[in-house]
Design a protein around this nucleic acid. Structure first.
Lengths: 348, 348
DNA sequence: AAGCATAACGTAATCGTTTTCGTATATGTT
DNA sequence: AACATATACGAAAACGATTACGTTATGCTT
């Protein structure tokens, strides 16, 4: 059996009044008598009437849906961002439509198109790795549908809102902290330099080294292609073979940091006495490994909430035909200092 | 400025033909001349025409959206399930609308209602912890909108499809394995017994103990309320204080198992020589900790794909007005045997 | 009593597509 | 020549809710 549904017309017919009156009664308009409202409400409850938001959406030209496009969902950072987005959306009465690009440009284009066809009221995007052209967002711009980028944002696009994390500062403070704790030769297991965030963290590392007069040495930079635990393990072995006097490692993310920790312990190095270790992203597991891993925490939930709030403001502004200025928000990271990088003298 | 959009009528007027012809030309209907098709296609491209799927949805009475309701998204298991769902949905041309209940019954009810109002073509649900009544799904049943439950499924509802993991068997095989490796006294750090899955794992533990003639001892059962690393740590200390001869621990999930591992090492126990350890869920980190943690892996991606596939089949069947039988799928777990539980005699 | 305001509802257009019937012209058949 | 068959398109009615305009009946003012 196929679908059947209760409509305004059903209620109207049953009550012998017009659909207009039923609609207004349900919306509690002032020019409907209390008696009629009561009758409508009761019948609606009895028949389990539920408004068809597709029909309402067509008429009102809004879907009450916001689209979210992310590279990957199986990822603590992104899933937290989505949680933040969904919180804000729910509070404002919006639903969330989700797509995952798997870092593929083509999928991103297809997803963007699908979102537009669904007439989402606004779009939240974190770009795929491969993405370096932005024409697929043009339909949104031309139709005045707000788009807010977060985390991985387009470098060239000018008139859009963005929410990012201050990767540079996070990395800078992490490395500076390591130097202050006595590190003299710090390696950096960095991410792919095609990625915006990875570049910023790399630059933070470099500037901290420079500021404190330590020598810059490119052979202390190791490129993680996949950002895995395994890469952390192998690079840890590599760096200490090439640089036996390396006494600190700063990693692009905790996965790599944890891998390095495992390898260092296997090789018999003491952390932080022989080699200090600082990661990025502050995974849940990091605070309970042995020793607890210092890490730069990113406000992922906050990022989702901020991005969604900005988007909703822009949606409202667009609907009410008022101008708005694009926002560029940079969220602060926080260095979580733990035993893996604590003062070498004090450490056991 | 508000929204403006290109419609079929715009194309029709520009070309001096009817909207019906334009619509059919775009859908490549056979009774439209190649010349007209070409003209339409070209203008559509030029004006960047994109069909309004809200309007189409209203007319065709389908949204091409499937709703997904889960307790939590910041969770490796659930985010993997969602990934699986999105893969299948994308291949079939469906979009995904997502809600998170945060384990709250009231939120689940509100989300279910929102999904229905959005006229999703089908619904995928993993129930909230608190949920023990199912009336909120009635509108779906009454309107013949397919619903498929996964992971946390309703015990009482009869005529719905379900996809679950064989927790019982997974736990049974894990504990049996520990016994075969020489464990004589195995503790179980179990989950809240209000949860279906936790109960099944608990029963698997009990039956394996029984089958192999080991004594059952309720004081070896520890109740994790929050399923955290910290609980694993504190219970590990507790159990070895109360039962110095405990030589194996099976935990409700890897978080707890990893916590136990940390505490055991701190206290100077060797793993697995003194105490063997097996977790559940097979976290990514588990294969690289020291020693690698044995764990029961759940096919999370597979679960998402299966649930989505079944839902799509039911959507098609409903649309074509053919009957379908509800499915009950139980997915197999797989015991990943690693050093943390390997034969005590062989272990170092 | 004429005029006006107000309360409470109805009519009908509208949103953008899809789809069911047509219809007109051209072509082929006998 | 009469008829059937294709071909290529159009008119108009859906889909269900919203809303700009009416409209009617009643009460109130002066």
């Amino acid at each position: 059996m196929s679908r059947k549904q209760v409509t305004l017309a059903d209620l109207a017919q049953e009550l012998g009044i017009s659909t207009a009156t039923v609609s207004r009664a349900l919306k509690d308009y002032p020019d409907i008598s209390p008696a009629t409202k009561k009758r409508v409400l009761e019948l609606a409850n009895k028949l389990n009437y539920r408004p068809n938001s597709i029909a309402a959406g067509l008429r009102k030209r809004e879907s009450k849906i916001i689209g979210v496009i992310i590279p990957s969902i199986v990822n603590h950072f992104f899933s937290s961002v989505i949680k933040g987005i969904m919180q804000v959306a729910y509070e404002a009465g919006y639903k969330v439509m989700l797509c995952q690009t798997d870092e593929s440009f083509e999928k991103e284009v297809a997803d963007t198109r699908a979102m537009f066809d669904s007439r989402v009221d606004g779009l939240l995007v974190s770009l795929a790795h491969e993405t370096d052209s932005f024409d697929h967002f043009k339909p949104f711009f031309e139709s005045n549908v707000p788009v807010v980028f977060f985390d991985k944002v387009p470098p060239t696009l000018d008139d859009v809102s963005r929410v990012v994390v201050d990767d540079y500062k996070g990395a800078f403070l992490a490395v500076e902290h390591m130097i202050q704790q006595g590190c003299k030769k710090i390696a950096h297991f960095r991410g792919p330099q095609s990625a915006y965030t990875s570049r910023n963290r790399n630059q933070g590392y470099i500037d901290a080294i420079k500021k404190h007069g330590l020598p810059l040495d490119d052979s202390l930079l190791y490129d993680c292609a996949h950002i895995t635990i395994e890469e952390g393990q192998s690079f840890a072995k590599e760096v200490l073979a090439q640089h036996p006097d390396c006494d600190g490692i700063f990693t692009i993310t905790d996965a790599v940091g944890l891998g390095a920790m495992i390898a260092l312990k296997e090789m018999g190095y003491r952390i932080p006495k022989d080699v200090a270790l600082v990661g990025f992203s502050d995974w849940e597991i990091s605070k309970v490994v042995d020793p607890p891993l210092s890490s730069v925490s990113q406000p992922s939930l906050q990022m989702g909430r901020q991005a969604a709030s900005i988007l909703l403001e822009e949606i409202i502004a667009t609907r009410d035909e008022v101008d708005y200025a694009n926002k560029n928000v940079m969220l602060d990271t926080k260095l979580q200092i733990r035993a893996s990088s604590l003062s070498k003298e004090l450490a056991v």
